[in-house]
C-alpha cells in the first residue's frame, strides 16, 4: 500500500512537468508580448524591462530558469502588478477559492448521492421523476445562466440573499449560499444520475439476489450490500467533477465577485500577465492532481479487488 502511494506520488511529477511545459510554450509562441501597450516607451527602457524579466534570453534558457524557480516554490514576479510577486496574489486568493470549491463539492456529493439512492429505491414513482427532472435541469442549464438567474430571483427580487460579496463583508456567511449552489448544481445532477443508474444496476446484480434469498432486511441490503458497489462509478466521476468545479469556479467567482483565484486567472489571461497565468495554472493543476490521487485511494479502499501491485 505504501509502495503504491509512493509510486502514484512519483507518477504525478511527469504530469506536472507536462502542464508547465505546455502552458509555458503556448504562452511564448503567442503573438504579442506583455509590454505591447508600452510600445511607445523608449527602446532603452523597454530593453531594461525585458532584461529585468529575463525576456531577452533565449526561450529555452527562460524555460529552464522558470522550471528551476517553480521547483523551489517561487512562481516569479507578476508582469502587471508591481507591488507583490505571483506567490502573494495566489496565496491570498486561493483560500477563498478552496472554501467555495469544498462547499460546492460537499453539497454535490452529499445531496447527489442521497438523491440518486432515493430515486433508485423509489424507481418510477413521483419521487424518482421529480429528482431526475431536477437533475436534468442541473445538467442542461449552464452555471453562468443559473448564477445570474438565482441572483435575479433571490437577491434582486426577493432580497433574501446578497447579490455578491464575500464572507469578510457585511453579509458574512450568507454570501456563500448562492455561489456554492450555483457551482454545485451541475455536479449534483451528474452525481445523482450516476448514483441512480449504478444503484439500479447493482440492485439487479446476482449478489443482491443472493442477499435477498438470505432473507436480509431491505435496509441491510441497501446500505451494506448495495451502497459500496454502487458508489464506485460515482467515485470515478469525482476526478472530472473536481476539474469541472475548478473551471466553473472561474465563472462563478466572476458572477458573484468572489475574491478568488479564478478572478486572477481571467484578468491575467486578458493582460497577458505570463507569470500570473502560469502560476494559477500550476496551482490549479497541483490541486487537481492531488484530488485525483485522493480519489484513487478512496476507490482502492472501496473495491477490494484493486491490487496495489
Amino acid at each position: 500500500m505504501t509502495k503504491y502511494i509512493i509510486r502514484r506520488l512519483l507518477g504525478m511529477i511527469p504530469t506536472l512537468l507536462i502542464i508547465i511545459t505546455i502552458s509555458f510554450f503556448i504562452i511564448r509562441i503567442a503573438p504579442g508580448g506583455p509590454f505591447d501597450s508600452e510600445r511607445s516607451l523608449p527602446e532603452q527602457v523597454l530593453q531594461n524591462i525585458e532584461a529585468k524579466y529575463h525576456l531577452d534570453e533565449p526561450v529555452i534558457v527562460q524555460y529552464g530558469r522558470y522550471l528551476f524557480d517553480v521547483l523551489r516554490g517561487d512562481l516569479g514576479p507578476s508582469y502587471r502588478y508591481q507591488d507583490h510577486d505571483v506567490n502573494f496574489y495566489i496565496f491570498t486568493s486561493l483560500p477563498n477559492s478552496i472554501i467555495l470549491g469544498i462547499i460546492a463539492l460537499t453539497i454535490a456529493i452529499v445531496f447527489g448521492i442521497s438523491a440518486g439512492m432515493l430515486s433508485a429505491v423509489r424507481q418510477n414513482t413521483w419521487v424518482d421523476y421529480t429528482t431526475m427532472s431536477f437533475a436534468i435541469v442541473g445538467i442542461s442549464v449552464p452555471l453562468f445562466v443559473i448564477g445570474p438567474v438565482l441572483q435575479w430571483i433571490f437577491a434582486m427580487n426577493l432580497g433574501w440573499l446578497p447579490t455578491s460579496g464575500w464572507i469578510d463583508g457585511d453579509y458574512g456567511l450568507k454570501t456563500l449560499i448562492l455561489p456554492s449552489i450555483t457551482l454545485s448544481l451541475g455536479y449534483f445532477a451528474n452525481i445523482a444520475r450516476l448514483m441512480r443508474s449504478s444503484m439500479l444496476e447493482t440492485l439487479r446484480s446476482d449478489y443482491i439476489r443472493t442477499a435477498k434469498a438470505k432473507g436480509l432486511k431491505n435496509s441491510v441490503i441497501l446500505f451494506k450490500h448495495t451502497l459500496k458497489g454502487a458508489l464506485l462509478p460515482v467515485v470515478s466521476y469525482l476526478g472530472p467533477a473536481f476539474a469541472g468545479i475548478i473551471t466553473g469556479s472561474v465563472v462563478v467567482e466572476q458572477i458573484f465577485r468572489v475574491p478568488g483565484l479564478g478572478k486572477f486567472f481571467v484578468q491575467s489571461s486578458f493582460n497577458r500577465d505570463y507569470t500570473l497565468i502560469m502560476g494559477v495554472v500550476i496551482v490549479y493543476s497541483v490541486i487537481l492532481i492531488i484530488m485525483n490521487f485522493i480519489v484513487d485511494i478512496i476507490y482502492s479502499f472501496l473495491d477490494p479487488r484493486i491490487s496495489y501491485k
Binding site: L216, K217, K228
Partner: peptide, 25 residues
C-alpha cells in the same frame, strides 16, 4: 415473515458463483 423463511428454511444457490457472492464484503 417471508424474510424469516428465506435463507433459513428455504435457501438457494445460484448458477454463477463468480457474481453471486458480494465482491465488496
Amino acid at each position: 415473515r417471508l424474510r424469516s423463511i428465506r435463507g433459513n428454511s428455504i435457501s438457494m444457490i445460484f448458477q454463477d458463483p463468480m457474481t453471486s457472492l458480494n465482491p465488496f464484503l
